[in-house]
């Protein structure tokens, strides 16, 4: 299970020691260079190689501007890398597809559709019968705790509720991988905590593969099996850390768990050592 960075050394060894999982996403030597108006082109990602095993919850953690979202967009097929390839189940990714479902920080709900209409959109697009799609949508909305809000328009919802709808909308078309792009970044601290708990609960039921981008160390440790630490300018993987904490995880237990605290302190120390967080964006 988990991430195998294609990099010789201690990390590959860690992976071998664990239960072998079928790789679902393979990123091979991916680089992304953006042309800018200034003379120097901006290298967002530099030679990234990463394998994500099926059913793993993997966080990509790094300071803003390290290209972590770009990496996620490449896996989503929304952005094509300047060089290198990303593969989904052994096939090169050429564009977006319903096997990889994104959840964005900006929610990106369809404002002209009701909550129910948003969640039904994907299944209908896949050719599901309307009655069946509606039943599925209602089940998912119940799962994210939004029963009773089916007829609401997105503008009538709070940020946390919008993100719940977005999650249900993505789950509705049954992607094999969830691509979450700082999904809780725009929410207040209290709502964020609640959504983290609920996400874990939902995830622990069917253990879909999740690629989760965040800049919060606690969030990454709390949720993930693996944390991929990135550095910036250029964006590189600097460390992959296994989070060996028991599941199902409960926040009130974890907060008292010295191992959990150690992971956080450890990761923060590594970021501090590089001074990476202080760069202007």
């Amino acid at each position: 299970m988990g991430v195998t960075p294609i990099r010789p050394g201690q990390l590959a060894g860690v992976s071998l020691g664990r239960r072998a999982a079928t790789p679902i996403i393979e990123i091979e030597h991916v680089s992304q260079v953006f042309k800018t108006s200034s003379r120097r082109d901006h290298t967002a990602l530099s030679d990234i190689s990463l394998t994500v095993g099926e059913g793993a919850f993997v966080s990509i953690l790094g300071p803003s501007g390290c290209g972590k979202s770009t990496l996620l967009y490449i896996v989503g097929g929304f952005v094509s890398p300047t060089s290198g390839t990303a593969k989904m189940k052994g096939k090169p990714i050429t564009g977006p597809g319903p096997d990889r479902g994104p959840v964005f920080q900006e929610f990106a709900l369809f404002p002209w559709k009701s909550v129910l209409g948003n969640v039904m959109y994907g299944p209908l697009q896949q050719g599901m019968k309307p009655a069946k799609a509606e039943a599925l949508a209602r089940t998912l909305l119940a799962m994210v705790g939004l029963t009773g809000f089916e007829k609401f328009y997105p503008k009538e919802l709070s940020g946390g509720m919008k993100q719940r709808v977005a999650l249900a909308r993505t789950l509705a078309y049954g992607p094999e991988v969830l691509l979450m792009d700082e999904p809780f970044g725009a929410l207040d601290a209290h709502t964020r905590t609640r959504l983290q708990n609920d996400l874990l609960e939902i995830w622990e039921r069917d253990r879909k593969t999740v690629l989760f981008v965040t800049h919060s160390v606690e969030e990454a440790v709390f949720l993930s099996d693996k944390v991929v630490m990135m550095s910036r300018s250029p964006g590189r993987i600097r460390e992959v850390i296994d989070i060996d904490l028991p599941r199902p995880r409960r926040r009130e237990e974890l907060l008292l768990d010295p191992n959990y605290q150690r992971y956080i302190v450890e990761i923060e120390r590594m970021f501090d050592a590089s001074g990476d967080n202080e760069l202007p964006s």
Binding site: P96, E106, T170
Partner: peptide, 24 residues
């Protein structure tokens, strides 16, 4: 991101223009 969400659901570029850009 709204267009990306549509693309992930399998909407073709033409469908995206008609069913996402037009209503949005």
């Amino acid at each position: 991101k709204m267009l990306w969400s549509g693309a992930a659901m399998g909407l073709s570029p033409g469908e995206r223009l008609l069913r996402i850009v037009l209503p949005a």
